[in-house]
Amino acid sequence: MSAQSMRFVHPAPVHPGDRVAILSPASGLPEIYPVVYELGLRRLREEFQLEPIEYPTTRKMNSPLVERARDVHAAFADPEIKAIICSIGGDDQIKLLKYLDAELIRANPKPFFGYSDNTNLHIFLWNLGITSYYGGSIMVHWGRAGAMHPYTRTYLKRALFERGLYEIEPAPNYTDELIDWGSDDLLSKQPKMYPNTGWRWLNGEKIVEGVTWGGCLEILDYNLRASRYIQANENYEGKILLLETSEEMPPATYVYRVLMGMGERGLLQQFSALLVGHPPAWSFECRRSPEEKEQYINEQEEAIRQALREYHPDLLTVFNLDFGHTDPQLIIPHGGYVKIDALQKRIFVEY
């Protein structure tokens, strides 16, 4: 079935007291950082009233792909499991997809939460016509140092428990300077937050509505290179592209080249709008000053603008959304409806 004729299934919301699967279909970091992971589980129970159910590979690093796939199948097939939440991202999940039973998953749709390397599973679900939710990680968001950020908590609760059209707003503050998971005072530390500069608009004066597709740029690049899970160009016509970069902080030249490849492929031209996540510009290995961070962010934005000038000069684009690797995090539907009103500078998403 082509995406043009596809109707996306919105899995039912969860309710307090429901059982939810906690999976590690990418990296098994809960084994290495159990304190962070268990903090996230505790908040899921206490602040969301949900019962986390773990699987054999959830706390296991370097699990064989077939074992990870077995856990994914078990979570989707179990009628007592009402949603699936990833523990963390990783870097090899594309290799998992060939082991997945598409018909089993199609027959048992349920809300799926994850980001970063979990872009692979979002693409897999999109191809099955199942709406998923880009964002949310037990270790990063529920297990956040100090306390969950109220902005993240708000959008997680909407995506989990509610259904309907909601207006989203920029986060009041943000950070990319996360707390070291190995620090002794992890539970009491608060991340250093910075004022958020808000959204930046390109090619406004229009209203665009459509279904979203995309995710982490580096993982989209995996899929574009493999060309196994990317559909024909025309199946993305009118869709809204989501892009964000990871904590690996790819250089602007790489970002441009990925979009150049999409343009040469004829794919970039299919989209009716582009939403870009706020890029992280700091890591423990690369501790940039505020001025250096601003330069990195501006260079990435210019790389995207350059690609658009060449391949899709009239594409409505909004920069600096909060759905990526910075904190706090907006949860955005993947394969879900979004309305972008550039006239009033407002965005609405359907959970």
Rank of each mutant, 00 (worst) to 15 (best):
G214W: 11
I81C: 13
M61E: 15
P313I: 04
G164Q: 07
M6W: 02
I219C: 02
L44W: 07
E177G: 00
Q329C: 10
A147I: 03
H312K: 13
I22F: 07
L125W: 09
N127H: 11
R42G: 12
G143T: 10
E51V: 12
Y99C: 04
A26M: 04
S132E: 12
A107H: 03
R163W: 02
W213I: 15
A69N: 06
H122L: 00
I138P: 02
P170C: 04
S283L: 02
T58R: 10
L165D: 13
L274N: 06
A281C: 08
L29V: 01
G336V: 11
E244C: 11
A3R: 12
S188A: 13
E234F: 14
W181D: 03
R163K: 13
Y99M: 02
R287W: 04
K293G: 10
L274A: 04
E291Y: 04
D180M: 01
Q300Y: 00
S272G: 15
D71K: 06
Y155Q: 01
A232T: 10
S289I: 08
Y55K: 01
P64Y: 09
C216A: 12
G143Y: 09
K192G: 05
H141L: 05
Y155A: 02
S289R: 11
V72C: 11
S87A: 15
V14M: 03
D185V: 08
P280L: 05
D101A: 07
R163N: 11
L343S: 01
A3K: 11
N223G: 03
F113L: 03
P313G: 08
F348S: 11
A12G: 02
S272Y: 01
V36H: 03
Q269W: 02
R43N: 05
C286P: 00
I168G: 09
R59E: 14
V211N: 05
P52N: 08
F271K: 09
L316E: 03
D314T: 14
T154K: 15
C216P: 00
V349P: 05
R228E: 12
N62F: 09
P333N: 03
A75S: 09
N203L: 09
L160Q: 07
Y236C: 05
L243N: 09
E247V: 05
W199C: 09
Y133W: 11
N298K: 14
L178F: 14
A273P: 04
Y174I: 04
L50P: 12
L128Y: 10
L186D: 01
R42N: 14
F76H: 06
Q49S: 11
S27M: 06
H325V: 00
P16T: 05
M260D: 15
Y55G: 02
I297A: 05
